[in-house]
């Protein structure tokens, strides 16, 4: 489903290279975990996947279902089924969460040539998804992410994911800022979306998320490269021993 080949990406403004020859393949139905020390380029990778224009790809390619998506803007990538749950969701004063959800869902449908949702259908879908993720309906009337607590923001990210039904989900530290109960609620939400035709990339620092969301593969990112890949066991080793050994043996 996703094939990243020798990807090099730099900060557009100052030319600093962050992703330095990264290779990664994720198959349909697979849950891939990405771990790695702070500043290794995990969030940057997620931004580059989603098409954020602050980063420039200088070499390599990103193939999604066999096609390069480098020329597509973030909205076009989203309409094709790509979704990024942000590490730091953006606050948008003046745009009510409900209004935003409706526009996003309908714009994606339009781009795919589907009919727009009727208001009752939309309301029903939102209500169901919100109650599953324990998001208070009152919150959806507030401006998007404005004044939401850290955990609320993360839950609303997963709510968006559930409603938009993407094919490739990238979750950037969705577990950070969640209390123990919220972690379970959010993990259940993510697991509910697991399906043979959907792939997930889960970026995290902690094994405890991977206890809830069992990964099929684990990849260690360091200085903009995948330096080691393995199965769920690799995450447990890292949890026990830290990154030092992996980094040393890669050098």
């Amino acid at each position: 489903m996703l094939e990243i080949r020798n990807l090099h990406a730099r900060i557009a403004e100052d030319g600093t290279e962050i992703i330095r020859g990264l290779n990664l393949t994720v198959k349909a139905g697979e849950v891939a975990a990405i771990m790695g020390p702070n500043g290794s380029g995990k969030s940057t990778l997620s931004y580059v996947l989603s098409g954020r224009e602050d980063y420039e790809v200088t070499e390599g390619d990103i193939l999604y279902n066999g096609e390069s998506i480098l020329e597509l803007d973030p909205a076009e990538r989203a309409a094709k089924g790509l979704f990024l749950a942000f590490q730091y969701p953006v606050e948008i004063p003046g745009v009510a969460t409900m209004q935003f959800l409706k526009v996003a869902m309908n714009e994606q449908r339009k781009a795919r040539g589907e009919a727009e949702l009727s208001t009752p259908d939309f309301m029903r879908k939102v209500k169901e998804a919100a109650s599953a993720l324990k998001v208070e309906p009152e919150m959806l009337r507030r401006p998007l992410n404005v004044g939401f607590s850290g955990g609320e923001k993360k839950r609303v990210e997963i709510l968006q994911m559930a409603l938009l039904e993407p094919k490739l989900c990238v979750l950037d530290e969705t577990d950070s800022g969640l209390d123990i109960d919220a972690l379970r609620v959010v993990s259940d939400g993510v697991n509910a979306l697991r399906s043979p035709d959907r792939a997930m990339i889960v970026i995290t620092h902690y094994q405890r998320l991977l206890d809830h969301i069992q990964p099929d593969s684990v990849h260690v990112l360091y200085k903009g490269q995948v330096i080691k890949s393995g199965d769920a066991e690799l995450a447990k080793e890292l949890e026990a021993n830290g990154y030092e050994d992996v980094i040393k043996s890669a050098a």
């Binding site: 989603s50 098409g51 954020r52 224009e53 602050d54 803007d73 973030p74 909205a75 990538r77 989203a78 309409a79 979704f83 990024l84 942000f86 969701p89 953006v90 948008i92 004063p93 003046g94 745009v95 209004q99 935003f100 526009v103 996003a104 714009e107 994606q108 781009a111 401006p143 968006q160 938009l164």
Partner: peptide
């Protein structure tokens, strides 16, 4: 960028922010 990453085309996303 955040709005566009949810599939809202640029012109529409700009419109939402202007209105906001």
């Amino acid at each position: 960028y955040y709005l566009m990453s949810r599939g809202i085309p640029e012109s529409k996303a700009r419109g939402l922010l202007v209105q906001a």
